[in-house]
């Protein structure tokens, strides 16, 4: 018996959320005696990246080193995973909640006749049935969910467990799979991606700006603070709708859901749809010139003041800390 973990990578670097999923699997296995934690990496991934997977808690990595799998083609990844799942005799599949992870998990649930739970926030409890806590209503509530299938797939939210880094090196087994050509029928023609920036869904700190920033020309201040903190930048929906910022930075109910340790919101009113995307943050700081802005009710710390005065001072104060 074993627990399989799906590893996502971006251009060969393993995603932090996937490492968290490995640590989740390890905690699950330790708690419930589910056997070995085996990670699967599809496509070209550097050896030193696979080492991190071991340190996060996997005892073995199955590396399907096939260039055709570098792109996240949903059906091809689903088939590859199903084959490895069968080969290693797993009973549980763990993956990080992400756009590719969701798509692959759903197809696998049908392929493996498994019970799938998404947005998992804690380890399962098995005293009476296999019970998993998941977040619903876009973070506004939780549901205790019983899974009634023998095989289980859990799509885990960020921060469900702490990332482990003290595991031992994992044995890497490189395998070749025979994947049906028809599963590559979807063609990725090009990608358009910000290079070198901290990815918003994985970021530990996020600095977000709203309509109170007045215009795209003022985003330098947000970026300066983000750079000083090693943070990703985000924005409210109207800001991406008007085109001040790219769409993938839009945080909220209809945008990216973030779960950083620290979320700093500048010139954002705190509409309920925006809060839905940030309510899993550990600590929220709000900077707004209106003391009655609803965001202050959801914040841990706040400064009532003009963003254009406060931001440069904050960046300086963070610099001074170092």
């Amino acid at each position: 018996m074993s627990v399989l973990v799906y590893i996502e990578h971006a251009d060969g670097s393993v995603k932090k959320n996937s490492l968290e999923a490995v640590s989740y699997a390890k905690a699950l296995s330790d708690k419930q005696g589910e056997g070995e934690v085996i990670a699967v990496a599809l496509g070209s991934v550097a050896q030193e990246e696979l080492v991190k997977v071991g340190h996060a808690g996997a005892s073995k990595v199955v590396h399907v080193n096939d260039e055709k799998l570098n792109a996240g083609i949903i059906q091809a990844h689903s088939e590859a995973l199903a084959q490895v799942y069968g080969k290693v005799g797993a009973k549980t599949l763990i993956l990080a909640k992400s756009s590719l992870g969701d798509a692959v998990a759903a197809r696998l649930a049908v392929k493996l006749n498994a019970g799938l739970v998404s947005n998992v926030v804690e380890l399962p409890v098995t005293a009476s049935g296999y019970k998993v806590k998941r977040s619903i209503y876009t973070g506004k509530a939780f549901a205790e969910t019983i899974v009634n299938k023998e095989h289980k797939i859990l799509a885990v939210k960020k921060n469900a467990v702490d990332l482990k880094t003290d595991g031992s090196d994992a044995a890497v087994e490189t395998v070749t799979l025979d994947i049906h050509a028809e599963n590559f029928a979807t063609k990725i023609t090009s990608t358009d991606k910000a290079k070198g920036d901290v990815l918003l869904p994985e970021a530990d700190i996020v600095v977000s700006g709203g309509r109170g920033m007045k215009g795209p020309e003022n985003w330098g201040m947000i970026e300066d603070l983000a750079k000083e903190l090693g943070a990703a930048t985000g924005c409210s929906k109207p800001v991406s709708d008007i085109g001040w910022r790219p769409h993938h930075e839009h945080v909220g109910q209809t945008g990216v859901k973030v779960a950083p340790s620290l979320y700093i919101a500048v010139g954002i009113s705190g509409a309920i749809q925006h809060l839905a995307g940030v309510n899993s943050s550990k600590c929220i700081v709000v900077i707004n010139k209106d003391a009655d802005a609803p965001f202050f009710k959801a914040a841990d710390y706040g400064i009532v003041g003009d963003a254009f005065e406060v931001l440069p001072k904050l960046t300086e104060a963070v610099k001074a800390l170092k």
């Binding site: 649930a109 498994a114 019970g115 799938l116 739970v117 019970k131 806590k133 619903i136 973070g139 506004k140 509530a141 939780f142 549901a143 205790e144 969910t145 019983i146 899974v147 009634n148 299938k149 309510n279 709000v286 202050f296 009710k297 959801a298 914040a299 841990d300 710390y301 706040g302 400064i303 009532v304």
Partner: peptide, 18 residues
């Protein structure tokens, strides 16, 4: 494949520190 036993609300947030 699943059924919900109970629902929960997140704990209430404390007051903001200004």
């Amino acid at each position: 494949a699943t059924n919900v036993t109970t629902y929960q609300l997140p704990p209430a947030k404390g007051a903001v520190k200004l």
